[in-house]
Simulated assay, not measured.
Amino acid sequence: MCRVRAGVLLVVLGITACSPAPPEPAAEPTTESVADFLARTLPEGPGGTVIAARGDQILYCEGFGMADREERIPASCDTAYDIMSITKQFTAAAILRLEAMGELRVTDPISTYLGPVPDDKRDITVHHLLTHTAGLVEGLGDDYDVMSRDAMLTQALSSELRSRPGEEFHYSNVGYSMLAAIVETASGIGYERFLERHLFAPAGMTSTGYVLPEWDRGQVAVEYDAQGRSQGRPYDHPWAEDGPHWNLRGNGGMVSTARDMFRWHRALTGGTVLPESARAELFAPHAPIPELGESYAYGWVVRDTEDGRIAWHDGGNGWSLANYAMAPDDGAMAFWVSNHAHRDDAWNLEDLEPDLTLGILDRARTQ
């Protein structure tokens, strides 16, 4: 399997050896509708949701297949899914929101917020965590291992660095969990509570979070493995009372809907949650990704094209798969998510991911 665990960069980012090259923008504008493109692109079998939008206008938002096969609940625009590593952009935005509030600076060493750190990690800054250049390991165990914040920090700070801080790009879920801990220290409130108060509520997002939304169980998609067996809903796995344990918190596991992801897009591009200077920082190409020829921004991967900058991030956990892409300059966005990423000897959405993502985004930009 291409991914190592939930929260790594998947095929679109080209980090793993078995991944195809990243997609190229369409050479010419297309007149094909999103619906027609999906009808000829998506295989029969998986369930999921697709949304395409430009500016304040939703161009397409529909479900496909089943969100819950046992209960015969079809997927819709309002089905909630685990969006996995797309969570990282919320964590990054929370850090920049705190910077705008004067509560921290991305140039601060992590010891400012996490206390004394070992000598080899004294030079790690908040910026290094945001850009995966701290040199930290990718993970500390399974997503659903029981782990407290203090235990996560202890293990992260005692782990051996893969490279010196600031020298190399090494994708690290641990780094984003550490950022979630910094959000809590700098704000004085819980990670999810800060996101809800300062990002989600201003954006009008009512169906995004870990435990704060009042989930109707039928709204949340069931995930399925390669044999088609149910793996339950995200919160059916071991979680703490206030959300996932700290191997996952901050780097993944957030639950959201396509409609809320559109609201998030509108809030980002409209300046509702971040001032212009912070938005520029969020999408700036901070750290080159040598394997790809693109750059990591803050919670996004970015690429400059003749038609402007494209920002994206994907996520996967072995069962589900998602991708969120946007063109910050012209306000187009595409988000798709499936609760069944692949089926043995039948289909694999990882193989379709680059073309599917850019195909939806191209149509959002030209229609």
Results as ranks from 00 to 15, higher is better:
Ala240Glu: 15
Glu241Asn: 10
Gly252Asp: 05
Val211Cys: 07
His265Cys: 03
Pro244Cys: 02
Leu292Glu: 06
Tyr235Pro: 00
Tyr224Gln: 00
Gln219Tyr: 04
Ala280Lys: 13
Arg279Thr: 13
Ala280Asn: 08
Gly271Phe: 06
Gly243Gln: 11
Leu248Ala: 15
Gly299Pro: 08
Gly204His: 00
Glu291Lys: 14
Phe283Asn: 04
Tyr235Trp: 14
Gly270Ala: 11
Gly209Arg: 00
Leu274His: 06
Pro285Leu: 06
Val255Tyr: 05
Leu199His: 08
His286Arg: 11
Val211Phe: 03
Gly209Gln: 02
Asp216Met: 04
Ala267Asn: 04
Asp225Tyr: 03
Val220Lys: 01
His198Ser: 09
Glu196Met: 09
Asp260His: 12
Asp216Cys: 01
Gly253Val: 05
Glu223Asn: 10
Thr272Arg: 13
Leu268Cys: 07
Gly243Trp: 04
Leu212Ser: 15
Ile289Trp: 03
Ala203Arg: 00
Arg266Ser: 12
Gly293Ser: 07
Val301Ala: 14
Leu212Met: 08
Arg197Gln: 14
Pro244Arg: 03
Arg233Leu: 09
Phe194Thr: 04
Gly228Tyr: 13
Val301Met: 13
Gln219Val: 03
Gly270Pro: 10
His237Val: 00
Arg193Gly: 04
Leu199Asp: 09
Leu248Thr: 15
Met205Ile: 07
Ala267Leu: 07
Ser207Lys: 07
Tyr298Cys: 12
Tyr210Gly: 02
Pro288Thr: 06
Glu214Tyr: 02
Arg249Phe: 12
Ala297Ser: 11
Glu281Thr: 15
Gly252Lys: 08
Gly232Met: 02
Leu282Gly: 05
Gly253Thr: 04
Ile289Ala: 02
Pro202Val: 12
Gly204Lys: 02
Gly228Arg: 04
Gly228Val: 10
Trp300Ile: 06
Pro234Ile: 06
Glu281Val: 14
Thr208Ser: 10
Leu212Trp: 12
Arg249Ile: 13
Phe283Arg: 05
Gly299Asn: 06
Pro275Arg: 08
Val301Gly: 07
Thr272Trp: 03
His198Met: 10
Trp300Phe: 14
Arg197Thr: 12
Gly271Ser: 10
Ser207Thr: 13
Leu292His: 14
Glu291Ser: 11
Phe194Lys: 00
Thr206Gly: 05
Ala201Leu: 09
Ser295Asp: 08
Arg249Cys: 14
Gln231Asn: 11
Asn251Met: 12
Gly299Trp: 01
Gly253Asp: 12
Arg193Asn: 15
Pro275Gly: 11
Tyr210Pro: 08
Pro213Trp: 00
Gly218Cys: 10
Tyr296Asp: 02
Gly252Phe: 07
Glu294His: 04
Gly218Pro: 13
Ser207Glu: 11
Ala203Pro: 03
Asn247Asp: 01
Ser277Thr: 15
Leu282Met: 15
Arg217Ile: 02
Trp215Phe: 05
Leu268His: 05
Gly250Asn: 05
Gly209Cys: 00
Ala278Phe: 03
Glu276Pro: 05
Ala240Asn: 10
His245Asn: 11
Phe194Leu: 10
Ser295Ala: 15
Leu268Tyr: 00
His245Trp: 09
Arg259Asp: 02
Ala297Pro: 01
Ala221Gln: 05
Gly299Met: 01
Gly204Ser: 06
Ser207Arg: 10
Asp242Leu: 13
Ser256Phe: 12
Asn251Arg: 02
Trp246Arg: 01
Gly271Glu: 09
Phe194Glu: 09
Val222Gln: 09
Asp225Ser: 04
Glu223His: 07
Ser230Pro: 09
Glu276Leu: 12
Val220Tyr: 08
